[in-house]
Simulated scan of single mutants.
Amino acid sequence: MAAYQISVPGPVTSREAGQMRELLNQQAARLERSGFSCCLEEFDQGTRTVFYIQNRVAGEKSEQGLRHSLGRAVADYYLAVNEPNLIRRIITQDFHYWNPGESREIERYAYHLLDDSEAEEPSHRRRKHWMARQIAKYFCNHRDLAVDGYFQFRMKRYRDILMKLVEHAIDEYLLDQEYREFIDLLRYFVSIQQPKVPLVHVLHIGIRRFRLLDGEGRPLQMKEMDHTVEELMDQVTSHEDLIVSTLLTVAPEQVVLHTRNREENVVCTLMQVFEDRITICNGCSGCRHLKGREDGFVPKG
């Protein structure tokens, strides 16, 4: 019956050894429930902890089950211990983001991308299954595995994936920073601006479709755009920006937003820019006209 050795940096009392021990014990219990069994021992070897795993049941099926179990344990360990450290090193050493606050934010973006099932990068579950299969294949021809060395020398392709992921995360981070700065600028402009009209109703009729009404429910009459607003909105690139620029020009004392989709980007943008000047209607007689009908809107109160 074959025996395998898995080693991790640090003595048996280290956090790394404790995590690997827990994961191997979980897989051993899983094997027991499946009718198989293995013997698990551990010992210090220099500055490393070595886990010695021996199959107690003869047969290829048992060996295959053990190899897959070891693959899952090592994959879980890597995702919990090595991957976060590698992502941090890429952020600081490869892209030179040394500021702890910035690097933590970029790391958060990176994990959001990794865990996004619709993103190009592999999700946590897919990464784990892929790694577990690769490690199980490795154990078909080898009996010893140094976890850190294995991922450093045999998983270079995966490191390239993480490099591209971090680069994508940095792009997202910088775009979001620009957006926040722009929102702060617009918010400041709203705070110092003298109101020109008492109330504006914003009808969010559909995706990227809006209508502005005055307090009496009449179409809002627009004057020429304020020069300061025009300068602020030089970077208008979307319908969201257009509706914001229009409201900045009108400068209402209060805005009532009638919408069926509070999660849409434009709604979030309006709420951030106008803050205490804007409220979302909780339902009025005119809201029934939001689904495709623009005429006959009667605002609440």
Rank of each mutant, 00 (worst) to 15 (best):
Y4I: 07
T13C: 07
T13P: 06
A17T: 09
Q19I: 04
M20A: 01
E22A: 15
L24D: 00
A29E: 04
R30Y: 05
L31P: 03
S34D: 13
G35R: 11
F36A: 11
S37V: 00
L40A: 04
E41M: 12
F43Q: 14
D44Y: 12
G46D: 06
Y52F: 15
I53L: 10
V57L: 01
V57F: 09
V57A: 02
L66A: 07
H68R: 12
A73I: 05
A75V: 04
N85T: 12
L86I: 11
R89D: 14
R89M: 10
I91F: 05
F95V: 02
H96S: 11
Y97R: 13
P100Q: 05
R104A: 15
R104H: 08
A110G: 03
Y111E: 09
Y111D: 04
H112L: 15
H112M: 15
D115T: 11
D116Q: 06
E118F: 15
P122N: 14
R125N: 11
R127P: 06
K128I: 00
W130H: 13
M131S: 00
R133F: 01
I135A: 01
A136Q: 02
K137W: 12
F139I: 03
D144N: 06
G149T: 03
F153K: 07
M155D: 02
R157F: 12
D160P: 06
D160W: 05
I161W: 11
L165T: 03
L165G: 08
A169S: 09
I170Q: 03
D171V: 10
E172Q: 14
E181D: 14
L185E: 04
R187W: 08
Q194V: 15
Q194Y: 08
Q194L: 14
P195G: 02
L199I: 10
H204M: 05
R208H: 12
R211E: 14
E216S: 00
V229D: 00
V229H: 01
E230V: 11
L232I: 09
D241G: 04
S245F: 05
P252T: 02
P252Y: 10
T259G: 02
T259H: 09
T259I: 08
E264G: 07
N265M: 13
V267S: 04
V267I: 10
V267C: 11
I278A: 07
C281N: 04
G283I: 02
H289W: 11
G292C: 04
R293I: 15
G296P: 04
